[in-house]
């Protein structure tokens, strides 16, 4: 028989096949496995159940489990694709994929639109932006008078709300982002390019083996 290589996959309960996840995302199989090392460390930080709960997510972000943060909660809700109150490995990889430097711009725009459309009405409304702005001011311990906050909102909606109906729809958001690309800066994580060097231990736990047959 000739000697050639094929992939043998050892299934580990609790997470999706790295080969399939790699085929659905911008990550290679090795990168998916390196992400599993990160996932394992976050998902076992409080309860070792192979799932990331809200508290574990906050702990990983802030190194503080009790720090309530509107934006971290919003990100968690978007990562929790199946709305189970926890993030499984498939959710984690597919969500982080949007943050990959090579991910389509459209996906990043969609993610930010959903992030800021907190009531899921299909539009970003003024009261939502005000709530987020106040949360940001609290977080950064910056004090601004209510008139100043209203002035920022006026300016923002004057710029973004082209049809002046008091809310920002998907196409207005796309238009605003194209004029202000820095608004998408949070959507690209250069770390994702170097994930295998950040978590080299994936090599020892690899589920995908090269075997000679």
């Amino acid at each position: 028989m000739g000697c050639f290589h094929s992939k043998v996959i050892k299934q580990v309960p609790g997470h999706e096949d790295p080969v399939i996840l790699a085929s659905q995302t911008a990550f290679t199989v090795s990168e998916v496995e390196a992400l599993f090392e990160l996932f394992k460390s976050i998902s076992s930080s409080l309860i070792d159940d192979g799932l990331i709960n809200r508290e574990e997510f906050q702990l990983a972000l802030f190194k503080n489990r009790n720090k309530e943060n509107l934006f971290a909660n919003r990100i968690f809700d978007l990562f929790d694709v199946k709305q189970k109150g926890v993030i499984d490995f498939g959710d984690f990889v597919r969500s982080l994929n949007v943050f990959h430097p090579n991910a389509p711009q459209e996906d990043k725009i969609d993610f930010t639109f959903k992030l800021y459309d907190m009531d899921c009405t299909g539009c970003i409304e003024r009261h939502e932006v005000k709530q987020m702005l106040i949360a940001l001011l609290c977080e950064s311990e910056m004090k601004l008078a209510d008139e100043t906050v209203e002035a920022i909102l006026d300016k923002t909606f004057l710029d973004a709300d082209v049809n002046q109906d008091g809310k920002i729809d998907r196409s207005e958001w796309q238009n605003l982002v194209s004029r202000n690309p820095s608004l998408l800066k949070i959507m690209t994580l250069p770390y994702l390019r170097d994930i295998t060097t950040t978590f080299p231990s994936f090599v020892f736990n690899s589920e995908v083996e090269e075997v000679a047959t």
């Binding site: 943060n69 100043t148 605003l176 994580l189």
Partner: peptide
């Protein structure tokens, strides 16, 4: 930059809660 001259989303996007790079910091 005075906040009033900034777009609200520019300010919001500086939130630590939106900075996922801290997930990768060991």
């Amino acid at each position: 930059i005075a906040p009033v001259t900034m777009n609200a989303f520019e300010l919001i996007s500086t939130s630590q809660g939106l900075n996922l790079s801290s997930l990768f910091e060991k």
